[in-house]
Computed example of a mutant assay.
Amino acid sequence: MTIWQTLEEADQSDSFPLEDILSAIPWNQDGLIAAIAQENDTKDMLMLAWMNKEALIETLSTRQVCYWSRSRQSLWRKGETSGHVQHLIDARFDCDGDALLLIVNQQGAACHTGRPNCFYNAIRGEQIVVTCSKPNNV
């Protein structure tokens, strides 16, 4: 039985060593896991990014969200240059351990465009509708 199957059968408040979970994550071929950031207060989905084990451990230890930048091939500490940091409130794996939900307090915009979140392109029938404007100062 895998750790994920054990977790499926677990009762509320059961606990398991973090290292057991980290070693069982089904990292993709690049050593990454999808991480979705959700705003704690509004429950808005802010963004999707990727984490490697180092980014995840740093995030858990510092409570400041750190991702893996696939384009730069380096750690990406959210807000390092923009000041728009994400403070980690809670981190949760999905049922089979291949995605991570990060519940955060977002300071400033989550999206590099300056928008509050990255999910501003809504599908409306046969059209894509932009749901919020890009700020003038970006």
Rank of each mutant, 00 (worst) to 15 (best):
T59S: 15
M47R: 00
D30M: 05
S61A: 15
Q5T: 14
E8W: 02
H87W: 12
M51V: 09
A122Q: 14
A91P: 12
V130H: 05
A34T: 13
K78E: 08
D96F: 04
G83R: 04
R92N: 15
C95M: 03
G114K: 05
T2H: 10
A91W: 12
F119T: 09
Q106L: 08
T81M: 02
D11T: 14
V130A: 12
V104G: 00
L22W: 08
P17F: 01
L100R: 00
P26V: 07
Y67I: 05
H112F: 08
A24H: 02
I21M: 01
C66A: 04
L48F: 03
T81C: 02
A110F: 05
I103C: 00
D90T: 06
A35L: 06
S61T: 11
A35R: 00
P26M: 07
G31I: 04
E80G: 13
Q5D: 14
P116C: 01
K43C: 15
A122K: 04
L48Q: 03
W27L: 11
I57T: 11
N40Q: 14
F93Y: 07
Q127S: 04
G97T: 02
S13T: 13
C66I: 08
K43I: 11
H112L: 14
D94F: 11
I89Y: 02
F93L: 07
D94M: 05
V65A: 11
E39M: 07
G114I: 13
E126S: 02
S15C: 03
S133W: 04
M45Q: 06
S74Q: 11
S13W: 09
S82I: 03
R92F: 05
Q29F: 06
R72P: 08
W76I: 00
S133A: 13
L100F: 00
